[in-house]
């Protein structure tokens, strides 16, 4: 049996991800998190913060919530159902760093937690920081 024939065989026998279930759950949980963030932002605005400061504090709050749920061992359980609904918002970013930080603490604070905490979030940081530097340069020199 050639590799192509074998590929046809195993692909036919390998069930795909259940999109009919995953996509609506991601929509509902992702939307729910955004609604929660809006509620938190309104609360921050209610304390008298400016719009930009309230937005920043909302991000901080959602990151704090993501880290807290990760530390309590609840994030993974929710994400198993929510999928992209928890992964894509900033809560997923917080989880990717805090879960690695927790996981590798057994190898020491510096050589474990500090070295490994960006193993998943690393690409997000690389592209995020690179894009912001590029944007800053364009803004400075061209506009």
């Amino acid at each position: 049996m050639s590799n192509d024939e074998y590929k046809k065989l195993y692909e036919g026998l390998s069930p795909g991800s259940p999109g009919y279930k995953n996509i609506p759950f991601a929509f509902l949980t992702g939307g729910g998190l955004c609604a929660l963030a809006q509620l938190i932002k309104n609360l921050w605005l209610g304390t008298g913060l400016e719009e930009t400061a309230a937005s920043a504090m909302t991000s901080v709050s959602m990151i704090g919530l993501g880290v807290l749920l990760t530390a309590l061992g609840l994030f993974g359980k929710i994400a198993r159902v929510a999928g992209a609904g928890t992964l894509v918002p900033i809560t997923g970013f917080a989880n990717s760093i805090s879960s690695a930080a927790l996981e590798f603490k057994s190898e020491g604070f510096i050589t474990g937690t500090c070295v490994k905490m960006f193993t998943i979030a690393g690409p997000v940081l690389v592209f995020g920081i690179s894009a912001s530097v590029l944007y800053g340069l364009i803004l400075y020199f061209l506009l």
């Binding site: 929710i78 879960s99 590798f104």
Partner: peptide, 17 residues
């Protein structure tokens, strides 16, 4: 898991295979 895949508390979804 920690050697081959992701941290235990990482919120990913697995495929049925």
């Amino acid at each position: 898991e920690r050697q081959y895949r992701y941290p235990l508390e990482y919120g990913g979804q697995r495929t049925p295979t």
